[in-house]
Design a protein around this nucleic acid. Sequence first.
DNA 1: AGAAAAGTAGACCATTTGGTCAAAAAATTG
DNA 2: CAATTTTTTGACCAAATGGTCTACTTTTCT
Lengths: 219, 219
Amino acid sequence: MNKLRDTDAGVGATNKRNILQAAEKCFAQFGFKGTAVQKIADEANLPKTNVLYYFKTKQELYVAVLEETLSLWNSHFDRATVDDDPAEVLAAYITEKMEVSRTHPQASKIFAMEIINGAQNLTGYFDEDHARWMEGRLALIDEWIKAGKLPQLDGEYLLYTIWASTQHYADFSSQITRLRGRKMIKADFETATRQLIQLVLGGCNLPVPSRYIENTDVE
Amino acid sequence: MNKLRDTDAGVGATNKRNILQAAEKCFAQFGFKGTAVQKIADEANLPKTNVLYYFKTKQELYVAVLEETLSLWNSHFDRATVDDDPAEVLAAYITEKMEVSRTHPQASKIFAMEIINGAQNLTGYFDEDHARWMEGRLALIDEWIKAGKLPQLDGEYLLYTIWASTQHYADFSSQITRLRGRKMIKADFETATRQLIQLVLGGCNLPVPSRYIENTDVE
DNA sequence: AGAAAAGTAGACCATTTGGTCAAAAAATTG
DNA sequence: CAATTTTTTGACCAAATGGTCTACTTTTCT
């Protein structure tokens, strides 16, 4: 009987984690087709056959990597209600998403390429979950509007703007680096985050919560 | 002597255009590595050898496609001066970029993937041109600020936000389509454009020019 | 018309690459 | 310790693919 324990310990689990990490790196840099299983194996310091032992096909490995990245979409925004302050919630959401772009740029890139190529591997439950999530968040925004906490606006385009503007720092980092002449460091991300919060909240006629203004060392 | 005329007429030119168009479609959908020359040939209704006759290598064809997309970056914003009204200029810029996303989504996707993968094929004069362009535009924004036409803000992040938010509608169209349940049509783009202008200009404390407000049929 | 150039196209090749097989080694279990 | 399961690994294969070669046809130019 094949056991393949689910525990995080053991040689198998360690190798799996190792492979997933190597795969993430490769897929982010070269895309699905552009990544050879051999390259992932090299990156993980394992023979290719060993990689195929843990993941039967390249596609299976890719989907596994992709699924890991989906957890990054979780956010406090998911559980916000009409009683919350939209300024606080949106500022926190933007901050969270910027933090993801800074700390998980590879995952963001893989996700972006997957979407650009038609999201062939994101069918199934992701679709429905995501659509349901969207529905709920748009309803919340409408409630905020009805409650006079937000001006009349289309939540859909607001969310797209937030996603696009935050993910941009991960996905387009090579362009940004070239334009600036150097990589963005943590402090740059903080400036960018503040500016983006100011822009989005300003665009929604919301006051920027004081803790998001010019506060250089609030982790 | 090899003539390969530059005219747009003639069998050669027609084929080249045909091939470039087919290639654009394929590269946008499958990326560079994911696109077989044979597939481009099929799409163009030509034998593979014929494609390689006009473009010596797949890479050369790819770069040719890429270079065509760069012309899409040209904008009225390029020639704006401190005497112009930033509200008008930025609104027009956003409108232009949204129009590119609507009418040239494939080009936008190819460009996006190229950047995500490190922009290996965009070295050389594009880099310098682009950096110089950026420098000039940031200087203009600073002039506007100095002239009291704009509040204190970092032009760099403003431009990133505009690029990201507009290109998003091309690059992530598959996600948007799934979330909405149907493709965005021209009218949807117009709504999105108005919303984005409102958001960005609002975030910059600029009044939205009347012609960008709720005006459903100003081509 | 005739030569030269441009364009078309099938056959073919070398490399890459995803994936299989079988066999050995290591770990686990009874 | 013996049996069984898990893991490791090299050898190998078939398909896909970028690109070449050669020969033929069509167009262009003088």
